[in-house]
Design a protein around this nucleic acid. Sequence first.
RNA 1: GUGGGUGUAGCUCAACCGGUUAGAGCAUCGGACUGUGGAUCCGAAGGUUGGGGGUUCGAGUCUCCUCACCCACCCCA
Length: 423
Amino acid sequence: MSSDQAPKKELAAVKGTHDILPGEVEIWQKVETTATRLFESYGYRELRAPIIEHTELFEKGTGRTTDVVTKEMYTFVDKGGRSITLRPEYTPSVARAIVEHRLDLLGTPMRYYYIGPMFHYDKPQKGRYRQFHQIDVEVFAEKDPAVDAEIIEMADTLLRVLGVAETEILVNSVGCKACRPGYSRALRAQAEKVRGGLCEDCRRKIDINPLRIFDCKVELCRALAKEFPQIMEFLCSECRDHFAEVRKYLGLAGIPHRVEPNLVRGLDYYTKTAFEVINRGGGQQNAVLGGGRYDDMMKDFGGPDICGIGFACGVERLIAMLSFKPEPRKFVYVVHAGDAAKAKAVELARLFRVGGVETLVEFAGRGFKSQFGRADKLGASWVLIIGEDELAKGEFLLKDMATGTQTSGSPRVLLAALQGRVG
RNA sequence: GUGGGUGUAGCUCAACCGGUUAGAGCAUCGGACUGUGGAUCCGAAGGUUGGGGGUUCGAGUCUCCUCACCCACCCCA
């Protein structure tokens, strides 16, 4: 019946998902290779986890009370009766892999990165898609604040190397199990006093998670929140020292940042350091990167007591800020006419490719003129000409499309000339 | 999940107050031009006006439903 009503529906991409076509995919490749090289230079290694996990992993890891878990997961029952979820975030998968493979006993640094798709069942809008992509970085078993600064430095460097401007790094500490309850109580008490002035959502937040009142965009709420106690005054000495050290190392690294006492994270597991990179010029979905420390997550969901810290960067949001124009490719277009020339075209193209030269052969059977037109339109740097004369001589013409000059020579001579000129 | 906006050719857009066969530019393909690109000229192809119902003698136009996209709330990277 759906096919009667909307015959084209099955031929369209699923709502909130997108094809990344040639022309745009080069930007993705640039971002991916840049991030990969950068992270590897810090000693981080790629850890690839499956796209699907047991639903329970996110319920325990991300948190049963979070919006992500309660209403935004792609969850289904597989044929074996298991509840399976398309990962909404990556951190729980890495934690799971560590426990499953006892990576903590290997003695190797537990510094991992990954770039791949995540899934949220949300209503799509700008900067928010059902399948989106994240660059994810995680460090485990490093409780030293210097590592907090290290990954913030990596995040900042990634953005700078990619040429992203107009961003700002916000940092905060959200405390720990020892000190945050006290702060929550103080916050709740203060919020209760001004309950009548708060919006409906914020009144609900008073009981659930008063810290999230700081996220509200309603003018009056923001004004009232300014008078609320600040977490810095409530941090225990350990958290206070930790935060001071993070800032010290950020300062030594020359990383500009702003302490934002109202910065809170959406996921339950964060402790101590929380940070975010926002796009100043961006619209509503202006958080391009966010993360923090989660020292209790592993233990809380039944694993070993290993602390962690990490961040996730939204690739779509990152790319939206890029003005990067990919370099035009340098390649050879082979013009050929006749069966013998076609066979020779295939042979020489193979030779060129082995020699590291990108070479395109088409078989549409066009005339010479039309083939040159194709080569021009596709942006070929050179045209290799294979016709009867060339076949007879065993020497072929190579035309430089920019200058129009043609040189004749054996395939190996021509290849050698090209090899010096391809990037 | 809740609101608002927009859907016409591959792309960007026309089409009066509801009125004949829904047009143009770009792109595509072909020809002028049978071994040499960008230009020019000529031609062709391309559409169930997102889909479905309703009103009407007549709907791209009005109306309802639906789908998709965009924007905001919400959430978050």
